[in-house]
Write a protein that binds this DNA or RNA. Sequence first.
DNA 1: ACTTCATTATGAAACGTTTCACACCGATCA
DNA 2: TGATCGGTGTGAAACGTTTCATAATGAAGT
Lengths: 329, 329
Amino acid sequence: MRRGTMPTMKDVAQEAGVALGTVSKVFNDIPVGEDYRRRVLDAARKLGYQVNSYARGLKAGKTGTVALILPNAYDPYFAALADSVCQALARRGCRMLMAVTGSDPDAEQQCIRMVEQNKVDGIIGLTYNPALEIPASIPFVSIDRYFNPAVPCVASDNFGGGQLAAEKLAELGCRRLLFLRIGADVPGEPDKRMGGFQAACQARGLEHAVMALNDRDGYEPFRVFLRSHVEGGRLSYDGIFCNTDRLAFYVQNMLAELGLRVPEDVQVVGFDGVRRFGNDGYYCSTIVQPVGQLAETSVSILLEEDRSALPSLICLPVSYAPGGTTMDG
Amino acid sequence: MRRGTMPTMKDVAQEAGVALGTVSKVFNDIPVGEDYRRRVLDAARKLGYQVNSYARGLKAGKTGTVALILPNAYDPYFAALADSVCQALARRGCRMLMAVTGSDPDAEQQCIRMVEQNKVDGIIGLTYNPALEIPASIPFVSIDRYFNPAVPCVASDNFGGGQLAAEKLAELGCRRLLFLRIGADVPGEPDKRMGGFQAACQARGLEHAVMALNDRDGYEPFRVFLRSHVEGGRLSYDGIFCNTDRLAFYVQNMLAELGLRVPEDVQVVGFDGVRRFGNDGYYCSTIVQPVGQLAETSVSILLEEDRSALPSLICLPVSYAPGGTTMDG
DNA sequence: ACTTCATTATGAAACGTTTCACACCGATCA
DNA sequence: TGATCGGTGTGAAACGTTTCATAATGAAGT
């Protein structure tokens, strides 16, 4: 074998006294006589051979790499997702290429082009651009965004989560509910949280109101809104459902400013189930998204061989967890 | 051009009426006549051509991909680091391959083998295995771990951070300081936090004590320790420096349990500068690590062409930020 | 003993780049 | 006018795999 450079399949073939194709078969789990297999593996071990995945990627098209496109990597929900996806891929012997977009539609499109050129085996995207051009040549799974029936979407049961939140608040004694929503105007899954909430309120004949804001508006209008609904030291609502834990976190601070106690005066439920820093609890009472399952399901759909009959939307069950902002502890 | 498949350089060359090598030069920023350059770029745009990075990786060895190896992706400090590294790489037109190890030394070694086979241009690692075998063929930059002078390490000024914490607490009126440390027994940079703390205490003639625990011990022994040092409703210490914000977060809860008020009875300073969930503050008063600079510096050292005279240790300045657990707000 | 057939190893071709020795061209100079 | 030379475009070879048509082998049937 040539020195000073990584050994190649040819070197292994020579060392083992077999043909090049035989070595290739061994490393691709294609049946080969037991004695041949052994000779190849021994030679490979002896030389410290490792498959060059770039040569493989060039010839076979399969690269064992999947791209994850996220708005950012530091928000706890996205961070948890990235971690889970990375592990789910590792279990299958795949690598994760990560790209962050800052929620910018143009950056998202550019990321897709970038990973397309990188010949990944698939893309998992949590994106904000409904007009995203997805190359037909690369399998794509969308998380939380149901843009297009042709693109499989994996999401939590957002409608059910909205219902659950309203029902929990009602059970805990709330009579006048408020839904607070912040986010981009994406026609994705998360909007269904409101639908579920409203449906449950109507079914129970509960008084309820809704206030929705766009990300770029910031949280300030919520503060103004809440202040304007305080009368005689009491808020017109006794239960608030926020569409993210982050919003619920802010709302707690706003309520404290107004001299309102949580959960005694107002109960608050968030959405996401993001763990607290210390990982020993939640930031608030919340509807917990099954992040691990979300990742596992996305990966298995993405890597599914038979792409003829893929589901267009998979909803995963959510659950409720008390976190100190409701009367159940 | 052949249909139903991605265009290649050959297609572009044909379309533009130039040679293959000329197209290659254009896409590698090698000088070429202006008219040729234009013809090539026009043809490429028309065909929607994109360089196949696997073919490039095979021939040239450069892949434009860098691996980041982390214990996990969900801890806020690691998440922030991952986000920053991803952005720093993107600015340079590179992609980030992410691997998580769960702090397991064997998993770390396996990750290195995995990315080695993937022919990355370099590895940025935050690892716990001091005996890690790093292939000489791949540039490696270590974050926070100064294992080996031959491997460049980028870290915060941990010694200075320890000093700063002690000095701040002293300035704020503390007289009996306690250092609490948790973590793996890695002989890396973070241990210097204690050194700096002790040096500053000695320089000022301050009474001080230290308690250090291994990750696997959990936080419980700290609780026991603190309880045993309460006498007559007062703790024997009036200032606590924790080696991570996470620990400081737990310590706050423990102190509250003991009926001690933070910061009135005891002031607490953490380390890391992790932002709170809402990103509008810190979890505690803390020594802030310059995460963005850490990432930027690591990447630029990793991608440095001239590898003959690399620094073996780069210390980046830390700063202090009040976060509600000290008397300065 | 000869054919047939299934099984399995073989090695050349191809994947899409980069590189480099070479050819070409116009300019400079004796 | 002819030789020399720097500059620039050309295209064949090489990178390390996978694939596939072919050859070799051995077992079974006549």
